[in-house]
């Protein structure tokens, strides 16, 4: 476990290369959509990480509210930043894939809407963190908002499903899950794994960065105090 943590970057890199191999060499080219369908692997994986991250943020926030340890606040904040990046990737890759296949960039389907709303929740969370001055208050308030965000991601998804089941499905039929080629499925699983590892790697880096910022700030303060005393 310790070794994995230390070499997380390397492991993520290897997994990423395996994923590239699986996607571009192993998995067959989709018949109707052609090569553009390859986006699918990245698209789904980044969505998975984006949704995973909001629950990690919520988990860390709950831990923070229990024991008020700055470390959990750091973990929550870093997870949110990285999660937001992955969800952005998902939202950007989606339309690139949709345009040639469906003929439109966007449709207000349940999954797309949920993802978009979750992205907005991430943005609200990150903006809140920037706009609260006191570090302790920032940690507490953003923790509360993240709990709402995580509960809401679930509720929005359900709401959208009910909403869309009230109406006939628009352009998209069945979905790609129906009858996925075994090699495609393998490629997808490898990519999901690789993205998850990449997420944990970036998450750890984000935490380290924030810890370094903390110690710089604390050193700066000590230095200032000593300067004042010497004078």
């Amino acid at each position: 476990m310790k070794g994995l943590q230390k070499h997380l970057g390397l492991v993520a890199l290897l997994a990423m290369m395996a994923a590239l191999y699986a996607i571009f060499v192993l998995a067959p080219v989709e018949l109707t959509m052609g090569v553009v369908q390859k986006i699918f692997y990245f698209h789904v994986s980044s969505a998975w990480v984006g949704f995973l991250a909001i629950y990690l943020v919520c988990f860390c926030s709950l831990r923070f509210l229990r024991n008020r340890d700055r470390q959990w606040d750091i973990r929550a904040a870093a997870a949110a930043e990285v999660g937001a990046v992955f969800l952005t990737l998902n939202l950007v890759s989606g339309p690139i894939w949709a345009k040639p296949v469906w003929g439109i960039w966007w449709t207000w389907d349940a999954r797309l809407t949920t993802t978009f709303v979750l992205w907005l929740i991430y943005m609200g969370y990150l903006m809140l963190r920037r706009l609260v001055d006191s570090p302790e208050q920032r940690a507490r308030l953003s923790a509360v908002v993240s709990i709402f965000g995580a509960v809401n991601a679930l509720v929005v998804y359900m709401a959208n499903r009910w909403w869309r089941t009230q109406h006939p499905q628009p352009v998209i039929a069945g979905g790609e899950d129906s009858g996925l080629h075994p090699d495609m499925l393998l490629a997808l699983l490898v990519t999901v794994l690789a993205f998850t590892l990449l997420f944990f790697c970036l998450w750890k880096m984000g935490c380290d960065l924030e810890r370094t910022r903390d110690s710089v700030e604390s050193l700066r303060r000590t230095a200032q105090r000593h300067l004042r005393e010497v004078r």
């Binding site: 709303v117 907005l120 609200g124 809140l128 706009l131 609260v132 308030l141 908002v145 965000g149 959208n160």
Partner: peptide
């Protein structure tokens, strides 16, 4: 959320940004 936003530097902006995505199921 108004109590949350009141502690920020731009509460007039912060409230809608936090609020609208979170109450979307209600709005819908």
């Amino acid at each position: 959320l108004a109590a949350v936003a009141a502690n920020t530097r731009m509460s007039e902006v912060m409230l809608p940004v936090l609020m609208v995505p979170l109450v979307l199921p209600v709005i819908l």
